[in-house]
Amino acid sequence: MQAYANPTRFNALALTILPWCVGSTVLLFLVGLYYSLVVAPQDYQQGETVRIMFIHVPAAWMAMATYTVMALASAVAIIWRHPLADVAAKTAAPIGACFTFLALVTGSLWGKPMWGTWWVWDARLTSVFVLFLLYLGYIAIWQAIEEPAKAARLAAIVALVGFVNIPIIKYSVDWWNSLHQPASVFRMDGPAIHSSILIPLLIMALAYTMLFLTLHLIAMRTEIMRRRIHNMEQAEVQG
């Protein structure tokens, strides 16, 4: 791990892995989309709308996974001051925010035909919505502070506080919902998962994961280059 603390080494590693990442992402998406749109049968109750699950659930999974990556990177940044840790956290945020946005919107587009309502305040939707706000707040902190080192520390604190808060919110809203006994049980995954549904879901989930990995690596390289540019510009000014 210490070996990859060196940005140059990281860049070299990233360049070797990147072609494989891009290739597998494209392949997985092609196969996944074929399975989702052609192979998977219509659902007995939901009809064609069940296909939304193949892009909604992976988005939601990635939204949470990305935040976990951000929180872990932030913890490493604060505790061990690994130089690449805050780069990893900073670059993961916009990607995670996009996944969260997609999870929310595709969820609404699935909910409307399924349950007749665009939104419902159950624990899962509420916590994903709050997750979206957390991403926005985290990105805002980076934008609002000019010195990179200061921004990194504050952003790390924000990420960790948010990470602790998400399960608390999920628990609170769950409890709150059980008090008010919602009209029906809103279960996003449906009653049981048959293999004809499971396989497209898993392929798409893998595709989304590889997409994240690819984009994250590229974004990290960009950020490392940006910092090098910043240093070089300083050197130029000082002559």
Partner: peptide, 15 residues
């Protein structure tokens, strides 16, 4: 021609 196909297309398109 299935019902609600618009929602499916909108989801995939937006994603």
């Amino acid at each position: 021609t299935a019902p609600h196909i618009g929602f499916v297309l909108a989801s995939y398109g937006l994603s």
